[in-house]
Design a protein around this nucleic acid. Structure first.
Lengths: 235, 235
DNA sequence: TAGTCTCTTTGATCTGTAGCAAACGCAGAG
DNA sequence: CTCTGCGTTTGCTACAGATCAAAGAGACTA
C-alpha cells in the first residue's frame, strides 16, 4: 500500500512528499474519531483545538449569519483536510462541521500544526494546495451567485455534488448521502420551495429523480447545458 | 528601516521571517514594473510567468463569465502579493488584473517561486497567510451574496473599500481611486442602475457623497448599521 | 467654446423568486 | 398497523430588483 493512502483513501497530497518513517510519525500523533449522522464535529466560534482528515463518510460545513440564516460553505469528502483554522491564522473555527453520514476522521491536536509545517515541507505544501482548491471553488461560487439565476446555480450545485459524492448506477449518478432540498437551497442562496419547484420540473423533463433526501442525476449532460446557460431551463 | 517594509509599504508578512541578507537576495531577483490607470498587468487565461507584490497604486482583479459578464474578484492594495497562480497549482492566471490608478509592483519570474518556498520558510508562510485572508474574504462575500439583499451588500462593499483604500478627510472617508457605479455593481452582483439609485438615496440621507467615479463615506457608522441589517435601509 | 464621450440619473415596466399558507406523504416509533 | 413528524409539494400573492429607454451632466478634445 502506498503510504500516501490509508484504507484506500487518497489523503489530498498532505503526505505526498513524506518518507515512510515520517508518515508513521505523523500517524502516531493522530487519533481516530467516529461520528454518526447529525453529530457535530466542531462548532463555529469554538476554540480550534484540533484539525482533521476525513477517512470516510461525509460532512457539511456551514456558517450562520448574524440573523440566523444558514449557508453551506462546502461538503467535506474522504481524504479532505479540514478544521485547519491555523492555516487561516485563526484560533476559532469559522464554521460548523456536521456529519451527514457515518464518518471517521484522523484527528491531531492543533498544537502539532506548526511542528508539522516546520518538519514536513510536503505538509505545508499539501495544506497550501488544499487552500488553493478551496479558494478557486469559493470564487466559482461567488461568480455563480453574482451572475447566474437560481436554476443554473442549482444545476451547478447538483453537478458538483455528483462529482464529489456521486455513485454511478445504471440509471444515473446517485448522490451518496442524504441531501434535502433545504440543503441544496443553502448551497445556492435560495429557498427550499424554489429548489423543490426546480427539481420537480427537472424530474418531469427526465433530468433527475428526486425523493425524500434522495437525488439521482439521470441526465448530467443536459444539466450541464442548463448550468452553462446553453439551454433555457425548464422552470 | 525595517526590511519587511519597502518605501514604507508593509509587504504582507512575506518577508517577515527573513534575514537581511535573504531579503536582499529576494529583492535582487525582482524587477519593478509600473502601470498607468487602465493598463492590464496580466490577463485571465494567460500563462502565469510572473508573480507580484504591489508597491503603490491600486489594481482591480476581475473574472469574466462564459457569457461575458464581468465580476470583480477583489482589489489589490499596496503590500499585497498577487498573481500567485503557482500557489493555486495553476499554470495560467485565473483572472485579469488592471491598474485603476498609477501603480508599481515588484515582479518575479514564476520560476523562482519554488525556490523561494523551499529556501525561505517565511515566504511559504506568508503566501499561506495571504491565501487564508482571501479565502475568508471569499466566504464572507459568498455569504453576503447568498443571504443579503442588494442594499446591504452595497453597504458592505463600500465599507470594505473604505477600510482598504479609504483616505480620512474632514467630512468623511474618501475612496482613494476612481470607482464607478459599474464597478460597485460588479462587486456586489447587481446592476449599475440599482447602485445609482441606492447611492442617491444614501446621498439624500447624508450617508455618502457620490460623484462621477468618486465616493465619500460621510456616515460609515450608519452604513454599517444598514449593512448589518440593524436598520432598514433607505431605498 | 462647442462637441463628443462616457458615466450617471431617473422613469416606466416586467418578472423571477421570495414569502405565506396549507396540504401531502414517506419513514420511523410505538 | 396506526400515529406522528419532518421533508416535500404546490398554489397564490407580493415585491425587489432587472430590464428597457432616454435624458442629463461632468470631463476631456479640438
Amino acid at each position: 500500500m502506498n503510504r500516501s493512502e490509508l484504507g484506500g483513501v487518497r489523503l489530498q497530497g498532505v503526505f505526498e512528499n513524506l518518507s515512510d518513517q515520517q508518515v508513521d510519525a505523523v500517524l502516531a500523533a493522530a487519533i481516530v474519531r467516529r461520528h454518526e449522522p447529525g453529530e457535530v464535529v466542531f462548532e463555529q466560534g469554538e476554540e480550534a483545538s484540533w484539525f482533521f482528515i476525513l477517512l470516510f463518510g461525509r460532512l457539511r460545513v456551514t456558517q450562520v449569519t448574524a440573523e440566523g440564516q444558514q449557508v453551506i460553505v462546502r461538503m467535506v469528502n474522504p481524504g479532505d483536510l479540514f478544521g485547519i483554522a491555523k492555516a487561516l491564522n485563526r484560533t476559532d473555527y469559522p464554521g460548523t462541521a456536521t456529519a451527514v453520514s457515518a464518518s471517521a476522521a484522523l484527528v491531531w491536536p492543533m498544537s502539532v500544526w506548526s511542528d508539522f509545517v516546520a518538519q514536513y515541507p510536503g505538509f505545508a505544501q499539501g495544506a497550501m494546495e488544499t487552500m488553493g482548491i478551496r479558494l478557486q471553488e469559493a470564487h466559482t461560487r461567488m461568480r455563480e451567485l453574482a451572475t447566474e439565476e437560481v436554476e443554473r446555480r442549482v444545476a451547478h450545485a447538483v453537478l458538483r455534488l455528483g462529482n464529489q459524492a456521486g455513485k454511478k448506477e445504471k440509471d444515473g449518478i446517485r448522490i451518496d448521502f442524504p441531501i434535502s432540498k433545504q440543503d441544496i437551497a443553502e448551497m445556492t442562496g435560495t429557498t427550499l420551495h424554489t429548489v423543490s419547484r426546480i427539481l420537480t420540473a427537472w424530474e418531469n423533463g427526465g433530468l433527475v429523480v428526486s425523493g425524500r433526501q434522495k437525488l439521482l442525476l439521470t441526465d448530467p449532460h443536459r444539466l450541464l447545458l442548463i448550468g452553462d446557460g446553453v439551454v433555457p431551463g425548464l422552470l
